[in-house]
Amino acid sequence: MSIFLEFLQVIAWICILSGGILVIIGALGSLRFPDFWSRLHAASVTDSGGVILLLLGMGIHSGFNLITFKLLLIGVFLFITGPTSSHAVANAAWVSGIKPLRKKHKKSGIDK
């Protein structure tokens, strides 16, 4: 039983660390990508993958009690509001007329 619990702990650490890596990748993407529309997708990596893995890791680490429920609540909340605010930003940018960049292996040329 104790070995099983320690195995769970190891899974929790792996989840937390890979979640952290995903968050870094999301931030790196939002720094590296060339235009606004592609940055939206990079931010969505943080919003989905990073949040799931980090919260899952913390939930397994704490065992099953009220803290897990609170983590679940934060997860559900971020799952509802994260896409909604992404959509709101995208919608506002679309309405205000920012068009996607058409890139053909060159950094120049917005053909739209």
Partner: peptide, 13 residues
């Protein structure tokens, strides 16, 4: 046309 915002607000309030 702000359908998603409306639905999410009603759910969350």
């Amino acid at each position: 046309h702000h359908l998603i915002l409306r639905v999410v607000t009603k759910l969350l309030v």
